[in-house]
């Protein structure tokens, strides 16, 4: 009897376990395909990069004995300069974007009225053109005998030197390219401030500055924080601006990663740089998110 029932249990048991598990946790079961997709498409390449960062320099296989040499190379050299340039340029870009975008966002929400849609469209259209093409457009604008200097020369006889290939041009390019990523979340944030709240503050005797500081800014904060995060993370990864408009006067960290993976053919070093960049940016983002909890500022808790 016992001998006869044993195989039946053995064949039925796994199916039973899966069914019970599915029944008990339908949410998890339905999330399985997405989890599998994320594991294969997102986690696996990241894990690959992380593992490569521990391989000996200039190796192309993960079948070597792990080593910390790449990290030692990075910390003992001058690569920190590239990190500082990337973080510095991104910080300057984000600050400039905040200063430029807040008035525009305010205008789009409260001042421009029916023109807002058209203006929003004008800010959106450049996104449909490749970044490279837009930046080469700036080259043609600023180049000697180009749109700006050529016009000044022909109209006023003024012969100036090009402004291209300077740090200022890199910032200009980054502000130009990443503006929509600050502007639109910020506009959303500003539009979340109820007019009634502002009116009430004015009625209670608040000055314009007090309304801005106590009402506008805190209530628009979700959009502002998202704009900051989005544009900062993108700007830290900026490469083309420094290459095209900066003429490589500055070597950002992403350029170092590219060099390691191409000309130097040092995948492990490139991987180690990428891991460090992820850690630095991840840490900064986590610090901001700890200070401004998105769920709280979005009013979900």
């Amino acid at each position: 009897m016992a001998e006869a029932s044993a195989p039946a249990i053995a064949t039925r048991q796994p199916r039973f376990v899966i069914l019970r598990w599915l029944k008990l946790r339908p949410g998890a079961a339905h999330a399985l395909p997405v989890i599998a997709f994320l594991l294969i498409g997102f986690a696996a390449p990241l894990a690959w990069v992380i593992m490569f960062s521990f391989m000996p320099e200039r190796s192309f296989s993960l079948l070597n004995e792990p080593t910390l040499d790449n990290y030692v190379t990075i910390f003992s050299g001058t690569t920190y300069r590239s990190f500082l340039w990337s973080l510095g340029l991104a910080a300057v870009t984000v600050i400039l974007l905040a200063l430029i975008c807040y008035p525009i966002a305010y205008g789009l929400t409260r001042v421009f009225g029916r023109w807002s849609t058209l203006l929003t469209l004008l800010f959106t259209i450049p996104l449909f053109v490749s970044e490279n093409v837009r930046l080469y457009g700036w080259i043609l604008f600023f180049i000697k005998n180009g749109v700006m200097l050529g016009t000044l020369k022909s109209l006023f006889g003024y012969e100036g030197e090009t402004w291209l290939f300077t740090e200022g041009m890199i910032v200009l390019g980054m502000v130009y390219v990443y503006m929509p990523f600050m502007l639109f979340p910020m506009t959303l944030g500003v539009s979340m401030v109820p007019n009634e709240t502002r009116d009430a503050a004015f009625d209670l005797g608040a000055s314009r500055w007090q309304v801005f500081k106590e009402v506008d800014l805190p209530l628009a904060m979700p959009g502002i924080v998202i704009g900051f995060l989005l544009s900062f993370v993108l700007a830290v990864g900026a490469l083309v601006e420094a290459k095209v408009l900066g003429g490589q006067r500055v070597i950002p960290i992403v350029h170092e990663i590219e060099l390691a993976f191409t000309y130097a053919q040092n995948w492990p070093l490139g991987a180690a740089l990428a891991v460090l960049l992820m850690l630095v940016v991840g840490t900064l983002v986590m610090l901001v998110l700890r200070r401004f909890d998105l769920d709280t500022i979005l009013g979900r808790r």
């Binding site: 300069r81 590239s82 490589q248 006067r249 070597i251």
Partner: peptide, 13 residues
């Protein structure tokens, strides 16, 4: 190549 990359980085800015 490493020397050249470092040189480019060091004259950065």
């Amino acid at each position: 190549l490493d020397i050249m990359t470092a040189a480019k980085r060091e004259v950065s800015g």
